[in-house]
Design a protein around this nucleic acid. Structure first.
Length: 712
DNA sequence: TTAAGCTTTCTTTTT
DNA sequence: GAAAGCTTAA
């Protein structure tokens, strides 16, 4: 009815970009290339992000409309940063471009077309915790003979079903391969898979894997939809392609397969593929040219990040892998110090070394925020964390429990989810179980009484039902007193509708604060978190937008995870503690990699998998290539064993295979002091030793330790 | 039927 | 060395 008036986006004057001087030859070739499938093998530190950014800017400059460009990245943060940068370069508003992770773009498209697949546009997204909750219900529903052997836990089931989607392997094969002991349960597991799928649908809910698989279904089953997006996305760029799985590859190939299609550019580094455990398929990048006829392969081989010394050691390490694209990274920086190999006696000493060296670096003028401590698994972070705390060095932990995954956050958010999607069984049960006097049995009854398959049902209907005499009759005497105030609260939240902040504050005051005090011993900090959540929610003008942010876009982590309230303004920006996986794509002046022990890194469980060792070596490679100037590889020779006894460990095989001339061994000596002195010079200057990583540096002893080494 | 208390099971990495 | 899961008491 209204007249359409199109406001074209035009580059402003001054938006001129000097491609020639901003990029090297290889980068420029990628940025300015023509149509057709493109594979860009981009070594670590080769300016991959820069190249992608300029490519997008270039396309816009060529007159490609922003809405025709789809940029898929590994994290949403990366997408935001890249598009923001494109915006700066081109003076165009970046919001018209499509950018994000596969999951977030998938969710966006699926909401548009949900009805075609039997969902509605307010479908819930189930995270892992929700997935497990639902799987538990499914397991209870099929009657497994209890007296027999153990049945796989929801966790195991979730990982099986996820791999089933992401790797396309038959369930029985997966069970046989990874959980042989559960083979006898294959039939029951298959049954649960069915049940789980049906229950997700009934709940109008998708888990992370559905966001990919349903997206592919959408493209495959609905030609008109597929054509529409093939026409829209004339340029598809995918970053970190080495970490995509089969479903993701098929999605982009389907999208790029249109008539003018084929403008698919994937960028990645096969040496940095570290997500096979969750179904990422190395073949995607290795065999991209086979799958996409006419592929032109580019290589970015100039490394601007690291010193030649660091590059020498990283290259030497990755050379031990068989499967990879041939490439030669060339150093562009001037010489720096040799990477340091630091054998330590025990974890506390290792942590002390890290802390002392950090203090020295700070004195030398290195920003704390430009220093990272990386480890293979979260468990390794503890000794470093406590030590940094003692040294009063501010730090920030990346990863671990995400903000949203903490119980108290999920509890409160579950209320909002019910309002958004009244069919969300998982969220509704969670809310019910918070009420006093209600356990599993009553929750089930109430759910059966109020559940609806009605597509258009809204939250108000649901809340109205909660107040009916019928529902009331299901409750035990214990549950009744609190019930009416619960129903009132929910009704108020419904009334607050579009305003997530008000809804959250209302919930807190009406009931959750009391609940938290009773339930958690650290209720204060949890309530504080929730206040933070309310503040955070204020930026969103709908519950819907808030939920999407929390579940998909969130790079939001727990407040309590940082050392000294790192966010405060006049505080120094903190040192970063992170798993290697979380460190992907980042870089620091100095990187410490700790706990490089055989038995930890490579992870023994990974070694069970085919090609497990190569993947672990790539993880090690990713870790080392994060460093620009200084790299410290350390390990404690004694680690506290799982059950009490300390165990002497070998250094990681990844250290043992490194040529000696590529690093320098630092021998730690403990200063002899009688008083517990403040941080001093207890870290010695580097010394030459003839250390051989095959031999324990301090003790020639390979047995279990009966006696503690204690401090001598 | 709930909820507390006790036992058991793991810990690789995450959108 | 914690969280989930099961048992048992109320």
């Amino acid at each position: 009815m209204a007249r359409r008036f199109v406001l074209p986006q035009r580059p402003h004057a001054g938006g001129e970009i000097d491609f020639d001087s901003d990029l090297n030859e290889q980068q420029l070739a990628v940025v300015t290339c023509g149509g057709g499938p493109k594979l860009v093998i981009a070594g670590a530190g080769s300016g991959k992000t820069r190249t992608l950014t300029y490519r997008v800017a270039y396309l816009l400059g060529q007159g490609v409309p922003p809405a025709s460009i789809l940029l898929v990245t590994f994290t949403n943060k990366a997408a935001r940063e890249m598009l923001g940068r494109v915006g700066q370069l081109t003076q165009l508003e970046p919001y018209r471009m499509w950018g994000g992770t596969f999951h977030s773009v998938g969710a966006r498209l699926l909401r548009r077309h949900a009805e075609l697949l039997g969902y509605n546009d307010r479908f819930s997204i189930l995270d892992e915790g929700d997935q497990r909750d639902l799987l538990r219900l499914c397991t209870t529903d099929i009657d497994v003979p209890v007296e027999q052997k153990r049945f796989p836990s929801p966790r195991v089931l979730a990982s099986l079903f996820s791999l089933q989607v992401n790797t396309r392997q038959p369930l029985t094969d997966l069970i046989a391969e990874r959980y042989g002991r559960f083979l006898e349960w294959s039939d029951a597991i298959g049954e649960i898979a069915q049940l789980y799928g049906a229950r997700k649908r009934a709940a109008n809910a998708m888990d992370y894997d559905d966001l990919l698989q349903r997206w592919l279904d959408l493209l495959r089953q609905h030609d008109d939809v597929r054509r529409r997006y093939q026409e829209q996305f004339t340029h598809i760029l995918v970053d970190e392609y080495q970490d995509t799985n089969i479903v993701q590859a098929e999605i982009v190939e389907a999208l790029a397969g249109g008539e003018q299609g084929g403008n698919l550019m994937v960028v990645g580094d096969d040496s940095q593929s570290i997500y096979a455990f969750r179904g990422a398929n190395y073949d995607n990048i290795l065999r991209f040219p086979e799958r996409n006829a006419g592929t032109v392969v580019f290589k970015l081989e100039a490394n601007y990040r690291s010193t030649p010394q660091i590059m020498a050691i990283t290259n030497a390490s990755i050379r031990n892998n068989q499967q990879q694209y041939e490439k030669t990274l060339k150093a562009r920086r001037s010489d720096g110090m040799l990477p340091a190999l630091v054998p330590c006696s025990y974890p506390q000493q290792e942590a002390a070394f890290v802390a002392e060296r950090i203090l020295q670096l700070r004195d030398e003028g290195v920003d704390l925020a430009d220093i990272a401590v990386l480890y293979r698994g979260h468990a390794h972070r503890l000794s470093v964390e406590t030590t940094l705390l003692r040294y009063d060095i501010p730090y920030e932990v990346r990863g671990g429990l995400r903000f949203f995954e903490q119980a108290h956050i999920k509890d409160v958010v579950a209320h909002l989810r019910v309002l958004e999607n009244p069919r969300d069984e998982v969220a509704f049960r969670r809310v019910l179980l918070l009420q006093p006097g209600i356990g599993n049995v009553t929750a089930e009854r109430v759910w059966q009484a109020v559940r609806t398959g009605d597509d258009d049902a809204d939250a108000k209907d649901l809340v109205d039902k909660l107040g009916t005499p019928h529902v009331l009759s299901l409750l035990s005497a214990k549950a009744r007193p609190a019930w009416s105030s619960f129903v009132t609260t929910m009704a108020e939240v419904v009334a607050a509708e579009a305003d997530p902040e008000t809804a959250i504050r209302g919930l807190l005051e009406a009931c959750y604060e009391d609940y938290a005090v009773a339930k958690f011993d650290n209720s204060e900090s949890r309530i504080e978190d929730l206040q933070q959540l309310a503040v955070f929610a204020a930026q969103y003008d709908s519950v819907h937008a808030l939920l999407e942010e929390l579940l998909l876009l969130g790079e939001l982590y727990g407040q309590n995870a940082s050392g000294r309230g790192a966010a405060d303004d006049d505080e120094e920006a903190p040192v970063v503690l992170s798993t290697i996986h979380q460190a992907k794509g980042l870089e620091w002046h100095t990187v410490f990699i700790v706990h490089l022990l055989e038995g930890f890194f490579p992870s023994p469980r990974a070694l069970d998998e085919a090609d497990g060792e190569e993947e672990e070596r790539r993880i090690f490679y990713v870790a080392m290539t994060r460093a620009r100037d200084e790299l410290y590889l350390s390990y404690p020779i004694i680690r506290p064993g799982g059950y009490g006894g300390a165990v002497v460990q070998q250094p990681s095989r990844f250290l043992q295979e490194l040529p000696e001339e590529l690093y320098e061994t630092w021998q730690l000596e403990e200063e002899e002091v009688l008083t517990p002195s403040a941080a001093g010079d207890s870290v010695t200057a580097p010394q030459d030793t003839d250390f051989d990583p095959n031999v324990d540096p301090v003790w020639d002893d390979d047995e279990k330790l009966g006696e503690p080494w204690a401090d001598d």
